[in-house]
Amino acid sequence: MITINVRTSMALSEILGNWKFQVSLPQTSTFGDLLNQLTQTHGDELKPYLFETDGKTLASHIMFMVNGRNIRFLNKEKTVLQDNDEITILLPAGGG
């Protein structure tokens, strides 16, 4: 098993119970596997935030990052996670 660290923001933190937590996953798990595990545990409440209305495509306005890098520049949902990876899932923010 590997342990990964997850950080989220705003409504996602409320649904997931904390803005910062750890998840254990089998070796060679992907980012998609992590999302599956989170949606299994946190049910339908989470899904509309993470996916487009088709329930499959990752929501375009959410930032999904592995070690700070947007997964769109890695292997998207197929990005393989390593032990101690830092995952960040952020709802849209704005206003600098």
């Binding site: 923001s9 705003m10 960040t88 709802l91 923010a93 704005g94 206003g95 600098g96």
Partner: peptide, 24 residues
């Protein structure tokens, strides 16, 4: 907009503190 209402209207620019902390 996915952010203007209600998030930005309620929280204003200081919401970005969390966002930028999350991004390191």
């Amino acid at each position: 907009s996915p952010v203007l209402y209600p998030a930005f209207a309620n929280l204003g620019t200081p919401m970005v503190v969390d966002h930028l902390c999350h991004m390191g």
